[in-house]
């Protein structure tokens, strides 16, 4: 009996030893030198692997950071400025400060505002629907509402609102990685500067049709009338192709444009109620 055990131990040890020797030489032969700083940088990153930086994952981003001589074009939107300062510290480089951003869905074509003109009955993804035709409503620029952005989000930060049929961003969770921006075939989602208290003012429309056509398709469409552009004192608003755009980097949240918009296409979020003299009632998107 004891002999059997002995043989077993000897055989197994011999196999183990041989394997160890082979592995040692193999490891020597195929050794790849890696900059140890890559691991350090990777450690400083959030590890979400979302691809928001434009690289395949955090590892690839870390490699790029180590390889480059400056961090001008490299930014991790998830970690933000703090994270980039850490990375810069490790590499002895200068980090670029960027304003934190948040995703905003630029369509307010709820079922009520934008009547349906037909019914889609294909595979329910936005990508397929928009490859087939313009959409279920008269507005060819508006949201399909099949939630490609929702499935693209790794952070559970965007959800469909079943009542409006539109996606809504949860600001606290959004890291501005841009996955939803790429997923939206209608190009409706924009990364905008994050203001304190979650405040934002934006044109919730992407309709480039002429005023009449746009209005017919959707009650809250931007008709490109240009009133907001005139009203804005900070040159933050531009009109192109019958569509207004508010540059969030220039916007000072004065709310003047909101009051002049005849179709309520400009939306203000998380502001205190206005003082008496404001008459037009706003649709406020609850977050």
């Amino acid at each position: 009996m004891s002999i059997t055990i002995l043989y077993t131990i000897i055989t197994l040890s011999a196999i183990g030893a041989t394997a160890a020797i082979i592995l040692y030489f193999v490891a020597q032969k195929f050794k790849v030198y890696e900059d140890p700083r890559i691991d350090d940088v990777e450690g400083a990153l959030p590890g979400a692997n979302c691809g928001g930086c434009g690289f395949a994952g955090c590892r690839a981003f870390a490699e790029a950071c180590v390889k480059e001589n400056n961090l001008d074009d490299l930014f991790c939107p998830v970690g933000g400025n703090d994270c980039m300062t850490d990375v810069a510290g490790i590499l002895g480089l200068e980090a670029v400060k960027k304003d934190p951003r948040v995703a905003v869905v630029r369509c307010n074509g709820t079922c009520e505002h934008r009547p349906k003109t037909n019914r889609f009955d294909g595979a329910s993804t936005c990508a397929i629907a928009s490859s087939v035709y313009s959409g279920e409503t008269g507005c060819q620029y508006g949201c399909h509402g099949y939630g490609d952005c929702v499935s693209a989000c790794d952070f559970d930060a965007i959800h469909m609102n079943p009542e409006t049929g539109l996606p809504e961003v949860v600001d606290e969770k959004c890291v501005a990685c841009g996955a939803c921006v790429d997923a939206c075939p209608k190009d409706l989602i924009e990364l905008r500067k994050k203001f304190p208290k979650g405040r934002k003012i934006y044109v919730s429309c992407r309709n480039k049709d002429k005023g009449g056509v746009a209005r017919k398709a959707c009650k809250v469409a931007c008709i490109g009338c240009g009133k907001c552009e005139k009203e804005c004192k900070f040159d933050a608003i531009t009109i192109a192709n019958n569509l207004a755009f508010i540059d969030s980097d220039k916007c000072k949240l004065c709310r003047k444009c909101v009051s002049v918009c005849p179709t309520h296409a400009i939306i203000e979020v998380n502001f205190p109620p206005r003082k008496i003299k404001e008459i037009p009632k706003k649709e406020t998107v609850e977050n």
Partner: peptide, 12 residues
């Protein structure tokens, strides 16, 4: 199953 819907999407 919407086979062709997805295949067309894949193809494009």
């Amino acid at each position: 199953r919407p086979l062709l819907d997805y295949i067309r999407y894949g193809k494009s």
